[in-house]
Design a protein around this nucleic acid. Structure first.
Lengths: 327, 327
DNA sequence: TTTTTTACTGTTACCGGTAACAAATATTGC
DNA sequence: GCAATATTTGTTACCGGTAACAGTAAAAAA
């Protein structure tokens, strides 16, 4: 910047001003400085700028696993808002571990970010404390909590589970199994299960017919799960899967085994992945507004940072049950 | 850091040393300083540290679209290497646009990253120049180019297309159509197409039976494409899709229409997504080592940064054709 | 004991920008 | 035309660390 300033015959601060707010520099000087910048191929150092201004324009985004398209969609939504405003995304992946999340949060805080976006409302106690005392805006996205750290965008997984279970009961199913995978780690799935159970219990129906599979959700696992559930508890007439991946895997397995869906067993999923709409039979599921959640979370954060007062710090995006042929 | 130093009765630099290399501080002092750090809840400012040391430990990763699981897998691989070594990932999404890629590269360079990972070997002319003159290690991941900017990890899409076409011919198919989507943007898909054409041309078979769909790859689009191709050119006996999403969509559509796969038409895909192995009929495809490519790219970069000399700056990861029931 | 070496700690300057205020120039009003 | 005000530019200090070198204390060698 020194060199640019000298070449243009101005002071450093004038160069700095031109870069950040061209209007604050007179029309006479502008072309001279711009030419100098171009000639020297000058790229301002944002690290230095961040230190001096105490504004890093860094936003860490922490998700459980990028390979799960659900979270990739969220990050994409966040990305689309932030990048256009000059903010940078620091990406972190917890592998569904609260401890890893905690250490990521600590590490990211060292970059003095201006805000932070985390997934869900379940954190380690210490992680939560760190977030609360960090002094920066925090958005918890995806799950809706009863006492968010700060801002919160998402929907109630409990409610979604509850309503889908109610929906299945309405359709006449009476032995409904909830099947998830690693629900001790995937706490949002556990909430859906709890919602499902609550709905079944209310209606006096059996609530413990499902299972918690020991492995991350894959199509294969879904296929194995439905076989296992129907062997153990043949009376099951509907299976509500914690996510579409498992559900689609189950539908495909039923196809291979010649089991009629939904005659022999109805299947419902969660998330609203594209594949659910295309397979045969098409999957009844709960569509979650993933991209929108990411987008809204980022916008909420931007508004806060720009000092725009928010009418609310919690947005319930809701969800949508779509009935297709699998129920 | 000043406060910590005062509290512990040492100088700033001692605190700095303890944090970066505890062994460089005497055993006597260590507990005192550590206690001070804890008591004040001190978090070192990496922005300041980066500026002073000129080592930011920042690595931008630029992909075309995170929502495409192919790239999410790559980023995951990169993440797993970098985070454990204290590096941070700055994420960028180009939407398959070389111009957006260019502007992302420029923007990221302002953070004075220590290296950069980009997708593929196709960049805008200016983007390429910027990368080359940036003075930092660059890894192009996924595609294999004849003249990489710097390091390169991936496989030849042309070769993959070529071999899959050869494979189909060997299986007896003679009217092979290549179907992709937005191949003017997805240049890697275009390379696969070109490889396919080359293989067909060599054998004197028709090479222009396919189509380039006007929209991003979705299951739906794949379904529409196969109908459209078979209507226009009923003689087609095999369709090689640019990716598994399209191919799976086609298989599902054939299922709905009662068209026998592979009797009426054989279908092949590309990437090796899980769903391809599970649907009926299971999809013949080319498996690409996505996670590994990301992992290796990051490791290569780390080695370079740590001064470990590399035996080669180009790694051909290869690919694998898996035959399943759809051909 | 004295000298030399080693291990640790501190001092000073600087990384590359920006904030805050001061100075200079241009514009406006009377 | 001159003071008052607005606009533009510059000066200085500082953001929070680290590099490089200097200094001091402890250990080893003479």
């Amino acid at each position: 910047m020194r060199e640019v300033a000298d070449l243009a015959g101005v002071s450093k601060i004038t160069v700095s001003r031109l870069l950040r707010d061209p209007d604050s520099v007179s029309k006479k000087l502008r072309p001279r400085v711009e030419a100098a910048i171009r000639e020297l191929g000058y790229v301002p150092n944002r690290i230095a700028g961040g230190l001096a201004s105490m504004h890093t324009q860094i936003i860490p985004v922490i998700v459980p696993a990028l390979t799960n398209s659900v979270f990739a969609d969220i990050v994409q939504g966040v990305h689309d808002v932030l990048l256009s405003r000059g903010y940078q995304i620091l990406l972190g992946n917890t592998n569904y571990s609260p401890d890893e999340e905690e250490s990521l949060i600590s590490a990211f805080l060292g970059w003095f970010p201006e805000g932070i976006i985390v997934t869900g409302t379940h954190h380690s106690a210490k992680g939560r404390t760190i977030l609360q005392t960090s002094g920066i805006p925090v958005v918890e996205v995806m799950g809706l909590g009863d006492q968010p750290v700060d801002m919160n965008v998402g929907f109630s997984n409990f409610q979604a589970g509850y309503e889908m279970a109610g929906f299945l009961v309405e359709r006449g199913y009476r032995s409904i199994a909830f099947v998830g995978a690693l629900m001790d780690m995937d706490l949002r799935a556990a909430e859906r299960r709890d919602g499902c159970r609550a709905a079944l219990a209310e209606r006096g129906l059996p609530e413990n017919l499902g299972m918690d599979c020991p492995g991350r959700s894959t199509l294969r696992l879904g296929g194995e799960a439905i076989v296992s559930v129907l062997e153990k508890t043949p009376e099951v007439d509907a299976v509500f899967f914690a996510n579409d991946v498992l559900a689609v895997g189950a539908i495909l397995e039923c196809g291979r085994l010649g089991w009629d869906v939904p005659e022999r067993v109805a299947i419902a999923g969660f998330n609203g992945l594209d594949i659910g709409a295309e397979i045969n039979p098409a999957l009844t599921t709960v569509i979650s507004p993933r991209y929108q959640m990411g987008y809204m979370a980022a916008e909420m954060l931007m508004n806060r940072l720009e000092g725009i007062s928010l009418d609310t710090s919690v947005i319930d995006t809701g969800f949508e049950i779509v009935e297709r042929q699998s129920t």
